[in-house]
Computed example of a mutant assay.
Amino acid sequence: MDGFVYNGNPGRVIFGSGTVSRLGEEAEKLGASRVLVLSTPEQAGQAQAIAGNLGKRFAGLYPNARMHTPTDVTADAMRLVETLGADAVVSIGGGSTTGLGKAIAFRTDLPQIVVPTTYAGSEATPILGETENGRKVTKSDPRILPEVILYDVELTMTLPVALSVTSGMNAIAHAVEALYAREANPIISLMAEEGIAALARALPAIKTDPGDVTARSDALYGAWLCGVCLGSVGMALHHKLCHTLGGMFNLPHAPMHTAVLPHAVAYNEAAAPVAMARLAKALGVTDVAEGLYDLAAGLGASMALKDLGMPEDGVRPAVEQAMSNAYWNPRPLDREALETLIGRAYAGTRPGAGS
C-alpha cells in the first residue's frame, strides 16, 4: 500500500429518530446558557418549534440565513449575537443555515450545534464558503467545524422529493472529489464509497415513496459520510466551478452541484482511473459520468444551468474566474476544455468523455 496521511476531525455525532429532543442536553454539555438559533426565513417556524427543546437556554432566533453565506447577512447576525450575549449557536436547516453558523463561529469561536434537515453534508466539515461582491471564497479553520451534529431522520421525512434529490446529489459530489483528491487516503475512500452507495440506493426509493423511513435514514447516513469526506481532504475542479458559479450568478446551491457534477467527472475521468472504478462500483454503473447524469435526470432534477438562472454569456467569465485561483485537480485545467464543460452544463446536454 502507498503511504498516506489521515487527519480525523473531532466532533460529536448523534444519529437516529427523535434525537432533536436531546438538543437542550447537548447545549448543557457545551456549557451554553444563551443559545442563538439560526434558520432561513422559510424554516423559521420549524426552527422556533425545535428551539423549544433548549428550554431556558433559548436566547433568540435569527431567521435570515441565505444561500452562499453573504457577508452582509453574517454582519447582521453578528449584531444580534452581541446584543443577546449569545454563547452558542444552533443551526437548523440545510447548507445555507449551517454556513451562517460557521461564519459566526469563525468570527467568535462560539460552539455550534447543527440540526440538518437536508442532505447537504456541510455540517461535517471545517470549511466555510462566503460570498462578497460576486465572488465566493472558501476557508478552512478548526473554529469552523461544528462541535455537535444532531441527525434526526424524522426532520427529513417531509423534505420535498426534488430537494431531496438535488441535496443528495450535492452530497455525492463531496465524496466523488474525495476519491481523487490530492490528499486521498484509504479511510476516506472507504467512507466515500459507502456514502455514495447509500445515497444512490436511497434517492430512487425516496422518489418512489417519500415516506420510506429506511431510505430517508440511508440518505442522511450517506450525507454524513460524504460530508466527512469533504471535510477531511481537499476539493478539486467540481467544487471550484460551483463556488465560482454560485458566487457570480447566485445559482441555487444543490441544483447547481447536480448539474455540474457529471461534466466535472467526465473531465477528470481519464486522469483518475482508480477513483472512477470505485465510483462505478458504488453507483452500480459502467460509465460514471453518464451514470451520475442518468441518476439525477431520472429522478427529475434539472440538468441545465440555464434553467437555474445562469446567463448565456456567463460561460467565459466563469472560466476566467475559476482559473484565476484554481484548486488542485488530477487533470490540469485547460481553458478551452473548461468552456466546453460549462457550456454543456449550461445547456444540460449529456457529459462527453474528456470534456
Results as ranks from 00 to 15, higher is better:
residue 285 V to A: 01
residue 285 V to S: 00
residue 285 V to M: 01
residue 285 V to K: 01
residue 286 T to D: 13
residue 286 T to P: 01
residue 287 D to L: 05
residue 287 D to I: 03
residue 287 D to G: 00
residue 287 D to W: 07
residue 287 D to V: 04
residue 287 D to K: 09
residue 288 V to Q: 02
residue 288 V to H: 09
residue 289 A to H: 04
residue 289 A to I: 03
residue 290 E to P: 00
residue 290 E to D: 13
residue 291 G to T: 05
residue 292 L to Y: 01
residue 293 Y to A: 06
residue 295 L to N: 07
residue 295 L to M: 14
residue 296 A to D: 05
residue 296 A to E: 03
residue 297 A to G: 15
residue 297 A to W: 08
residue 297 A to L: 07
residue 297 A to D: 15
residue 297 A to N: 14
residue 297 A to E: 14
residue 298 G to Y: 11
residue 298 G to R: 11
residue 299 L to S: 13
residue 299 L to R: 07
residue 299 L to T: 12
residue 299 L to H: 08
residue 300 G to E: 14
residue 303 M to E: 02
residue 303 M to T: 05
residue 303 M to L: 08
residue 303 M to W: 10
residue 303 M to R: 13
residue 304 A to Y: 05
residue 304 A to W: 09
residue 305 L to Y: 13
residue 306 K to R: 15
residue 307 D to H: 12
residue 307 D to A: 03
residue 307 D to E: 15
residue 308 L to S: 02
residue 308 L to H: 08
residue 308 L to K: 09
residue 308 L to N: 06
residue 309 G to M: 04
residue 309 G to K: 08
residue 309 G to P: 08
residue 310 M to L: 10
residue 310 M to N: 01
residue 311 P to F: 06
residue 311 P to Y: 04
residue 312 E to K: 15
residue 313 D to H: 05
residue 313 D to G: 13
residue 313 D to I: 08
residue 315 V to Y: 12
residue 316 R to E: 12
residue 316 R to N: 00
residue 317 P to C: 12
residue 317 P to I: 01
residue 317 P to H: 04
residue 318 A to V: 07
residue 319 V to N: 06
residue 319 V to D: 02
residue 319 V to Q: 10
residue 320 E to L: 03
residue 320 E to M: 01
residue 320 E to A: 15
residue 320 E to Q: 13
residue 321 Q to E: 06
residue 322 A to H: 05
residue 322 A to I: 02
residue 323 M to V: 02
residue 323 M to Y: 08
residue 323 M to C: 13
residue 324 S to C: 07
residue 324 S to V: 00
residue 325 N to R: 11
residue 325 N to I: 02
residue 327 Y to T: 10
residue 328 W to F: 10
residue 328 W to E: 09
residue 330 P to W: 05
residue 330 P to Q: 08
residue 331 R to K: 13
residue 331 R to L: 07
residue 331 R to Y: 04
residue 331 R to S: 11
residue 331 R to T: 02
residue 331 R to C: 09
residue 332 P to W: 02
residue 333 L to S: 00
residue 333 L to N: 04
residue 334 D to E: 15
residue 334 D to S: 02
residue 334 D to K: 11
residue 335 R to F: 15
residue 335 R to T: 05
residue 335 R to G: 06
residue 336 E to S: 13
residue 336 E to I: 12
residue 337 A to L: 15
residue 337 A to R: 15
